[in-house]
Amino acid sequence: MSGVFTIYRRELAGLFLSPLAWVLLCVALAFNGFFFSLFVSLFQGDVGEAFAFFLGGSQTFWLMIVLLPPLLTMRMFSEESRTGVLEFLLTAPVTDAAVVLGKLAAATSVMGLLWSSVLIYGLSAQALGTAPDWPPIVSGVIGATLVSAIFCAVGLAVSACTNTPLLAAFLAVLANAALLALPLVEQLVPTPPGHWFKLALGHANIVTQFHASFSSGVLDSRQFVFFGVWTGFFVFLATRILEARRWW
């Protein structure tokens, strides 16, 4: 796993030396800023409500979560595969898992940077005389980064499947949307209360899991395990796909 950090640095440098990350961050921050101001105004200055709504309560948050990670991860394998760099990477003295983890860490870091902009909003509110309740904001940022990690992992798995970055982004957006919409299956397949299928879908509800913990200012081992395990699953999937490419 010593290669993870090397890959991480390489990917991070690649992202921040290309215009993509900057453009994405700039647009996303303007979008976030606009909506945060709107929420403060809507809640008549209640910054606690505005932060809670901004970090998970609103649809704009989930829209960002669905759209941004695929845009960050779309090139990570598909572009390298298209240009032939991937062959070198896979024959380098690092494991496939280290490659995937390094890239995931880089994409998640960018998302983390985006979400930590909320702290600047908090500082601004404090400077304006209304100190927010900081722990829920920090937990919200941590949670948003963990949620982003799942979607980045999905993006990586999809990127490993194709040689076309745009196709990878498109498929990853679809996959992310499907992942978020998974609990809606419950409405399509009516099941009695307490049915295992309903329970399973309930457990797989990312939105509820996020609201129940980080978004509300709670650190709960259950949600740490949930987000960690499912990120791990998609990392595992991406690694297997990468490995299968050698034989395909």
């Binding site: 900057w22 606009f34 200055g45 309740d133």
Partner: peptide
């Protein structure tokens, strides 16, 4: 508990707007 920014009788919201969707994305 409510922590409320005075958005009606002060320029707080305007200044927050400037930081949130002016200064921050602009600096990036």
């Amino acid at each position: 508990e409510r922590r409320v920014l005075d958005v009606r009788n002060s320029t707080a919201l305007t200044r927050l707007n400037v930081v949130a969707w002016g200064v921050l994305p602009g600096s990036f």
